[in-house]
Nucleic acid binder design. Structure first.
Lengths: 311, 311
DNA sequence: GAAGATCATCCAATTTAGTGATAGTGTTCA
DNA sequence: TGAACACTATCACTAAATTGGATGATCTTC
């Protein structure tokens, strides 16, 4: 069995001129180097050194072995570098849990530098919805959680901070019957139409029903973006995060509804981090960056709020 | 310093369930495995094992280290496979010396399989001309030599075999004055025109002058292909290997000359191999393949020989 | 709760890596 | 052409690493 030490000695011999000088470079006795090279030849069963000349030199086979050996040594250095980073407080992975109601786009600029820079920390982002968030929060104990504050039970060792507000408005397509209804729209009228809801992504726990108002028909969508398509197709109505509908409202494709009451839903959004076991270096960095990141939660324009009689 | 043995133990631990079972797989005592893992953690300064549960498992950091370690172990196996091939008689490299007058294309089909198949033997092909061949033959002691037999001194431990014949004919461009000369062309006439010769590729030895006929002007080309370009441009005349001019003659761009004498140059071409130190396995294989390779030296067509009054 | 596993640790025995000294051989230079 | 010097392999010996078996604490299973 060949050893890394043997490879290092072979490498030193190649760089130096002869066994003696290699020994000097390695701060070892000449006899030790001689011995190591001999055991290496025994281990591989290949003559690595040409000892016929005054100074021992690598044979062509020795050179070929060294070439492969240098790859091995390079990887070994990488491994030790990796270990050094872990030793310095870097964790092996950071799990981030993100509520799908929030704009994924906003967190990407924070994460990508960590992925591009060859950080030893593997960053894992998981996007869930409603019950799926609650489930992942409980089962996986993610390092960082970005989600509405009131909706979930941050049980266990979590520390929360509020980072902004998410505003949801009821909207329909411009050519939907509700769009022609003279505001304010009463709930009784609303219940006559199809409510487009986003499916809960939980696998084991019972789903969370947030904001159901008892309409006759409820249609389910797997995420907010596909629900937006449903809205555009005038299938029904739904409360949508304002950042998702600004463009469509401005383009005249969607219109917000002014209701009798419960028109505007406001959710405090928080950034939570696990406190035990404590975050590693990368986790702390990400926490810092995410908490300071501007534009993570775009506020609704005043114009949009005016349309539903606010501001 | 991490060792390969430590990596192997870590790998075994990952595959097995717990230290004891890893020890069994490795045919070692459990204490030895335990000890090795401890020294590994000390060496890297990283906690690799989670010992809190009943059976010890890798921590995320341990998993990251193992991932890199497996690359190292894979390379190590490659290295030992390499050594096994050398041990089995494969040589680290085979040097082939080829005279540039011969068709390189012919030897390629023999060589490429060795390059594609990941043979541990590095095949080095060197193409030289005239004195360059003689020089390389003497200085580098190549394993295999493919060249005219009579032109060079195969001194030293070489064994030769004749593999065919190379035929050279004097040619000019169709629009060259010599092409309109009524054959046979006397040498006195030939000497009035530019002789296109291929430069000797020797670096230290005096060049070999083969076939100089004392013309007033001699133009030098670095190889046979560029000399062909010179011929096409009607710069002068030259003896060319027939395989290089067949197409141009058939297309009416070049015409062979019939001379008073010395029209056709015939060279016996040989394949020589070094006998001491003996060829390795790959060298012998190549020798076998090259000596049996058909079409390595394309014979001139009867039609071409008829044009110069032969056959 | 008893039987059986698992794992870290201790100890003694073995193996391995390392050292300096020495001998044989090749190189350098007066 | 020697004499001085440099290079390498080998030997005897020491220090260090590795190993296997035993032990005890802890955890699982039934």
């Amino acid at each position: 069995m060949v050893t890394l030490e043997q490879l290092r000695v072979l490498q030193a011999l190649d760089k130096a001129a002869g066994v003696s000088q290699a020994a000097e470079q390695l701060h070892k006795a000449q006899s030790a180097v001689s011995y190591t090279l001999k055991t290496m030849e025994d281990a591989l069963g290949v003559t690595l050194l040409d000892r016929s000349s005054y100074r021992a030199r690598l044979t062509p086979a020795g050179r070929a072995v060294l070439k492969k050996g240098q790859q091995i040594l390079a990887l070994t250095e990488e491994l030790e570098g990796l270990a050094a980073e872990f030793r310095g407080g870097c964790e092996a992975r950071v799990d981030i849990l993100l509520d799908g109601i929030l704009p994924v786009r906003g967190v990407m600029p924070v994460l990508t530098p960590f992925v591009e820079r060859r950080s030893p920390t593997q960053i894992k982002l998981r996007v869930e919805l409603l019950g799926g968030v609650a489930e992942a929060l409980e089962r996986d104990q993610p390092d960082l959680v970005l989600a509405p504050l009131e909706l979930y039970a941050y049980e266990g060792p979590y520390e929360k901070q509020r980072i902004g507000e998410l505003v949801l408005l009821p909207v329909v397509a411009t050519d939907h019957p509700l769009a022609r209804f003279t505001p304010p729209v009463p709930l009784t009228e609303l219940r006559r139409h199809i409510h487009l809801v986003v499916s809960d992504s939980s696998r084991h726990k019972p789903p969370i029903d947030a904001g159901l108002i008892g309409t006759e028909l409820v249609w389910h969508f797997p995420d907010f973006h596909s629900r937006l398509e449903g809205l555009r197709a005038a299938l029904g109505f739904a409360w949508m995060p304002t950042y998702l509908i600004e463009d469509d409202v401005r383009a005249g494709k969607l219109v917000p509804l002014r209701l009798e009451r419960h028109t505007v839903q406001r959710h405090d959004v928080g950034l939570a981090h696990r406190t035990s076991p404590p975050l590693g270096r990368t986790g702390r960095q990400l926490l810092e960056l995410l908490s300071q990141q501007k534009g993570l939660l775009p506020a609704p324009t005043a114009e949009l709020l005016r349309l539903v009689g606010e501001g």
